[in-house]
């Protein structure tokens, strides 16, 4: 059984400008087609293995993000896509922006870019699959 053959992905937009979000969606559509790696975009955190965050964390979505993460089954991997999810980007100075996704969640993979390019996002997803596999193996070894 290999999780890595069919990771399901949950996307949440923190406070992104939409640029990274549409690129994430573009990844799933015919030209870039992340589905060839078995990735399926799901809206249900209970089904998801990967949590893909775009945009920075603010005071209102902090709880939402924590909640989504808590609902996902183990093992799980978090990707921060785009500079806003990494550090806050150009909006870091805004009063309502707390910073990158790692302010509230353990981030496994950072994807650079403003906006992140689909190639970079796919690369990030593929790396995340490796992390997922490691986490699964670690959990098995503990048993």
């Amino acid at each position: 059984m290999s999780l890595k053959k069919s990771p399901w992905l949950l996307h949440y937009d923190g406070s992104s400008c939409n640029g990274c979000d549409i690129e994430v969606l573009a990844c799933l559509t015919p030209l870039y087609d992340a589905e060839r790696f078995g990735v399926i975009n799901t809206g249900n955190p209970r089904h998801a293995d990967l949590l893909l965050l775009t945009g920075s964390i603010n005071h209102q979505n902090e709880e939402v993000v924590r909640n989504l993460y808590a609902q996902m089954p183990e093992p799980k991997v978090v990707l921060a896509v785009g500079i806003c999810a990494t550090s806050g980007g150009v909006f870091a100075d805004c009063y309502n922006v707390k910073g990158g996704a790692d302010k509230v969640l353990p981030v496994d993979v950072y994807v650079p870019g403003c906006a992140a390019r689909p190639e970079a996002i796919i690369d990030g997803i593929v790396r995340a699959l490796g992390v997922l596999e490691q986490k699964r193996a670690a959990a098995e070894a503990k048993k």
Binding site: N58, Q60, Y95
Partner: peptide, 9 residues
Amino acid sequence: LYKTAVRVP
């Protein structure tokens, strides 16, 4: 409406 961190920013 916005539930911002800072009041009347």
